[in-house]
Computed example of a mutant assay.
Amino acid sequence: MQFAHLAQRMFNRPLAIHPDKAEVIMAALGERFGITRMVRVDGQAIDVSASMFDDEPYEYRDRDNGYDMAGPVAVIPVHGTLVQKLGTLRPFSGMTGYDGIRQAFLTALNDQAVEAIVLDVDSPGGEVSGCFDLVDTIYAGRGTKPIQAILTESAYSGAYAIASAADRIYVPRTGGVGSIGVICMHVDFSKALTSAGVQVTFITYGDRKADGHPEIPLSAEALERFQADIDTMGELFVETVARNRNIAASKVRDTQAVTYLGAAGVAQGLADAVAAPDAAFRALVAELA
């Protein structure tokens, strides 16, 4: 994937991703775009340095359905940064596409050899676009076959939204759930361009057409409008988790995007049990026997 295309998908748009992962991605792209400092809305400046994703590409099989069969159970990987369209059925280059997850899930749901579906989740989340449509697809599959989310460490933000659509969620002792919120990183290149002797002139139709462009500072009006959009998406997130987990929306909202480790997530109603992934899987197989 070209870096410019990746930058378009990461900057100046809402993300359902853990803030720490967002900073790692900024660091990975920073050197290539001349970014050395990132400023949060709260005014805190963060130094970033070159870093690359540490996830290894997934090796494909011929005629792959997007899931592995472990006995009668289809195991669908939900790993790394989540994006709307990756064009592959499996995680690749540290990312998983909602398109691939959806295809794998629907195939498994209609596969007569599959008696249950496991979402193997280890992800900090990713793009908002496409996330909640996928969540609704998984939620609608409840009752057709058992669907369980077995975390192979953590499910944060968009990844937690996906996990919440399952019938049950198992989290390991050192794994985490939560980060139920939305974040947007606006990059302002205006001072850098001015220092380089570059002046950008926008010729627009519509007073707000250039809002959010990185070549100009973010105006108060634009910030207010973008915050309203983020709030709307955040409320959708809250309502979706409340529906999926059958808990009050106010309780979900009150988490304020906090992350919870292991048993603390269970206490909050965001997971059903603390269990090592292999133990959770064996329990599911025993139920099917």
Score class of each variant (00 low, 15 high):
residue 67 Y to N: 04
residue 67 Y to A: 05
residue 67 Y to H: 04
residue 67 Y to E: 06
residue 68 D to G: 09
residue 68 D to R: 14
residue 68 D to L: 13
residue 68 D to T: 13
residue 68 D to W: 10
residue 69 M to Y: 10
residue 69 M to L: 15
residue 69 M to H: 11
residue 70 A to R: 13
residue 70 A to T: 11
residue 71 G to F: 06
residue 71 G to N: 09
residue 71 G to P: 06
residue 71 G to Q: 06
residue 72 P to C: 12
residue 72 P to H: 09
residue 72 P to V: 11
residue 72 P to A: 12
residue 72 P to R: 10
residue 73 V to R: 06
residue 74 A to C: 01
residue 74 A to S: 05
residue 74 A to I: 06
residue 75 V to I: 15
residue 77 P to T: 09
residue 77 P to Y: 03
residue 78 V to N: 02
residue 80 G to A: 10
residue 82 L to N: 03
residue 82 L to F: 04
residue 83 V to R: 09
residue 83 V to D: 03
residue 83 V to N: 00
residue 84 Q to N: 15
residue 84 Q to R: 14
residue 84 Q to M: 12
residue 84 Q to P: 00
residue 85 K to V: 14
residue 86 L to Q: 11
residue 86 L to Y: 02
residue 86 L to C: 01
residue 87 G to I: 10
residue 88 T to I: 00
residue 88 T to S: 14
residue 89 L to P: 07
residue 89 L to N: 08
residue 89 L to F: 11
residue 89 L to I: 12
residue 90 R to N: 09
residue 90 R to H: 07
residue 90 R to S: 05
residue 91 P to H: 07
residue 91 P to K: 03
residue 93 S to T: 12
residue 93 S to D: 15
residue 94 G to M: 09
residue 94 G to Q: 08
residue 94 G to S: 08
residue 95 M to T: 11
residue 95 M to V: 10
residue 95 M to P: 00
residue 96 T to M: 14
residue 97 G to I: 10
residue 97 G to F: 08
residue 98 Y to F: 15
residue 98 Y to I: 03
residue 98 Y to W: 08
residue 98 Y to R: 07
residue 99 D to L: 09
residue 99 D to Q: 08
residue 99 D to T: 08
residue 99 D to P: 06
residue 100 G to P: 05
residue 101 I to E: 02
residue 101 I to R: 07
residue 101 I to C: 06
residue 101 I to S: 04
residue 102 R to F: 04
residue 102 R to Y: 08
residue 103 Q to G: 00
residue 103 Q to P: 04
residue 103 Q to C: 00
residue 104 A to D: 10
residue 104 A to E: 07
residue 104 A to G: 12
residue 105 F to W: 02
residue 106 L to M: 14
residue 106 L to C: 09
residue 106 L to T: 14
residue 106 L to D: 12
residue 107 T to Y: 01
residue 109 L to M: 15
residue 109 L to N: 04
residue 110 N to I: 01
residue 110 N to P: 00
residue 111 D to S: 10
residue 112 Q to V: 12
residue 112 Q to G: 11
residue 112 Q to L: 13
residue 112 Q to T: 14
residue 112 Q to E: 15
residue 112 Q to P: 12
residue 113 A to S: 15
residue 113 A to G: 15
residue 114 V to S: 06
residue 114 V to N: 04
residue 115 E to N: 13
residue 115 E to Y: 07
residue 115 E to L: 11
residue 115 E to H: 13
residue 115 E to A: 13
residue 116 A to Y: 07
residue 116 A to Q: 05
residue 116 A to H: 04
residue 116 A to F: 09
residue 116 A to D: 08
residue 117 I to C: 07
residue 117 I to N: 04
residue 118 V to G: 02
residue 119 L to T: 03
residue 119 L to S: 00
residue 120 D to R: 12
residue 120 D to P: 02
residue 120 D to Y: 00
residue 120 D to Q: 12
residue 121 V to N: 02
residue 122 D to I: 08
residue 122 D to N: 15
residue 122 D to C: 13
residue 122 D to K: 12
residue 122 D to M: 12
residue 122 D to V: 11
